[in-house]
Deep mutational scan, measured.
Amino acid sequence: GAPPLPPYSAGGREVTMKKGDILTLLNSTNKDWWKVEVNDRQGFVPAAYVKKLDSGTGKELVLALYDYQEK
């Protein structure tokens, strides 16, 4: 199953993602919540729920390892 959710501390809205989604990583300075862009929406997802990909394009991409439903 998915890892436990860290307390929400990102101070911005969250976004929903599905397992297998490829998201653009915008900011990973917060260790628990990373800012991503998905379907032209920006928001935060739990860092433990995604994995960085080596895209080779200069853009940082992450793979959704679990479904996440915004609150």
Rank of each mutant, 00 (worst) to 15 (best):
Glu70Pro: 15
Pro6Arg: 01
Val45Cys: 04
Leu65Lys: 03
Glu60Tyr: 08
Thr57Asn: 15
Ala48Pro: 04
Pro7Met: 08
Asn30Ile: 05
Ala48Thr: 10
Pro4Lys: 08
Gln69Asp: 14
Ser9Cys: 12
Ala48Asp: 11
Trp33Gly: 00
Leu23Pro: 01
Ala48His: 08
Asn39Pro: 05
Glu37Trp: 05
Lys52Leu: 14
Met17Phe: 09
Asp54Glu: 14
Ser55Gly: 13
Lys35Val: 14
Thr57Glu: 14
Asp32Thr: 05
Asp32Gly: 08
Gln42Thr: 10
Glu14Pro: 14
Glu14Asn: 12
Arg13Val: 13
Lys51Val: 13
Glu37Met: 09
Lys59Glu: 12
Lys18Ile: 08
Leu65Gly: 02
Trp33Met: 02
Tyr66Gln: 03
Asp54Lys: 10
Lys51Met: 12
Trp34Leu: 04
Ala2Phe: 10
Lys59Leu: 11
Leu5Arg: 12
Lys71Phe: 11
Glu70Gln: 13
Thr24Gln: 09
Gly43Val: 06
Lys52Gln: 10
Lys19Gln: 10
Gly1Tyr: 06
Lys18Val: 11
Pro4Glu: 08
Pro3His: 05
Pro4Phe: 06
Val62Ala: 15
Lys18Cys: 09
Lys31Ile: 09
Gly56Ile: 14
Glu70Ile: 09
Pro7Ile: 07
Lys52His: 09
Gly56Leu: 13
Asp54Ser: 13
Gly56Arg: 10
Lys71Glu: 14
Thr29Val: 08
Val62Ile: 06
Gly56Asp: 15
Leu53Met: 10
Asp32Pro: 01
Leu53Gly: 03
Tyr68Ser: 02
Tyr66Arg: 06
Ala2His: 10
Tyr68Lys: 02
Tyr49Asp: 02
Ser28Trp: 08
Asp40Ala: 07
Ser9Gly: 13
Pro6Ser: 01
Glu14Thr: 15
Glu70Met: 10
Gly20Ile: 00
Arg41His: 12
Asn30Cys: 09
Pro7Lys: 10
Glu60Asp: 13
Tyr8Pro: 08
Val62Thr: 02
Lys18Leu: 07
Leu26Glu: 03
Val36Pro: 00
Ala2Lys: 12
Pro3Gly: 05
Val38Met: 14
Gly11Glu: 13
Leu63Asp: 01
Gln42Ile: 15
Lys59Ser: 10
Leu25Phe: 03
Lys51Trp: 06
Gly12Asp: 08
Leu25Glu: 00
Thr24Asp: 07
Ala48Cys: 07
Pro46Cys: 03
Trp33Phe: 04
Leu65Gln: 04
Glu70Thr: 12
Glu70Asp: 11
Pro3Glu: 05
Val15Thr: 07
Val15Asp: 01
Glu14His: 15
Tyr68Cys: 02
Tyr66Gly: 02
Tyr68Met: 03
Lys35Gly: 05
Ala47Val: 04
Ile22Cys: 04
Val38Tyr: 13
Val38Lys: 15
Ile22Gly: 00
Leu61Tyr: 11
Asp67Gln: 03
Thr29Leu: 08
Ser55Ile: 12
Val62Trp: 05
Leu5Lys: 08
Glu70Ala: 15
Ile22Ser: 03
Glu60Cys: 10
Thr16Asp: 09
